[in-house]
């Protein structure tokens, strides 16, 4: 198990639950989803419990996260977009904490499963479509008809817009999933090299320093990716919500 870079993504049923022939078992993934919620909500709530006028260090971290997402949303979707703040903030914090928890050795990375990221992406796209249609009715379809395009090109442009809209949930989910998956596999492969080379006598033991350095560098990179992917997910969410608020370009 230890040498297989895929085994870290293996789900194991901790509490088997089956309802109507479907498997709803509480798995290690479920455990880390709970852990993500507990850590994220626990941190945000305990650090702000005092409501200090002068923030403590931890409180200012929570405030920074809040203002970071708030300014992202305001820039991306305008001040009207602030009604979606809880959604964007939840997504950002959930993905960020899930990614960061995955950086602990032997911990499971919730976001390394396509179904999880796809569900989050569909939540975003579903919000965009439902809110867009509720707010603008049929004129939400103007989203696919950019103004100022000559009539001849119109069918082509509309087709491209539709395809790009439909590919959004896929690109949004695959980007996060693939980054986390690939990063963790790479890390595991290089870490495996250390053990494999270290077992090959003195020369191999010396040579194992190279994959060790690589693993250290990759760990740093993975922390960056963990933050960056949460940021990208939140930024794209803001941009898509902007379409729901202002469909005509």
């Amino acid at each position: 198990m230890a040498n297989d870079p895929i085994s870290q993504f293996q789900l194991s049923r901790l509490v088997p639950i089956e309802i109507g022939g479907m498997d709803f078992s509480f798995t290690n993934s479920s455990l880390f989803m709970v852990a993500t919620t507990v850590v994220a909500a626990g941190f945000l709530m305990t650090t702000t419990a005092n409501r200090g006028l002068i923030p403590t260090r931890l409180q200012s971290i929570s405030e920074m996260a809040y203002e970071f997402v708030a300014s992202m949303l305001r820039d991306g979707a305008g001040s009207q977009g602030m009604r979606f703040f809880p959604l964007v903030f939840s997504l950002f914090m959930f993905v960020l904490i899930a990614n960061l928890l995955g950086m602990f050795p032997y911990f499971f990375t919730v976001t390394s499963h396509i179904i999880v990221t796809f569900a989050l992406a569909m939540l975003v796209i579903g919000t965009v479509v439902i809110y867009g249609v509720m707010k603008h009715g049929l004129s939400f379809l103007k989203l696919f008809v950019p103004s100022g395009i000559p009539g001849v090109l119109m069918p082509l442009v509309v087709m491209i817009e539709v395809i790009s809209f439909l590919s959004r949930p896929i690109s949004l989910s695959v980007r996060l999933f693939a980054n986390m998956l690939a990063g963790h596999i790479t890390l595991k492969v290089f870490a495996g090299f250390i053990v494999a080379m270290g077992a090959q006598g003195a020369l191999g033991f010396m040579g194992a320093a190279l994959p060790l350095l690589m693993t250290i560098a990759l760990t740093g990179l993975e922390f960056l990716v963990a933050f960056l992917q949460a940021y990208v997910f939140a930024v794209l969410t803001c941009m898509y919500l902007n379409d729901a608020l202002h469909p005509s370009h």
Binding site: D23, F24, S25, S30, M33, S90
Partner: peptide, 23 residues
């Protein structure tokens, strides 16, 4: 199904906490 259910439960709770208390 298991992942979707538990994601819905945990993210739902987190969303509620964020929108009602934290934000």
């Amino acid at each position: 199904p298991s992942q979707l259910l538990w994601l819905a439960i945990t993210f739902g709770i987190f969303y509620l906490l964020v929108s009602k208390v934290i934000a």
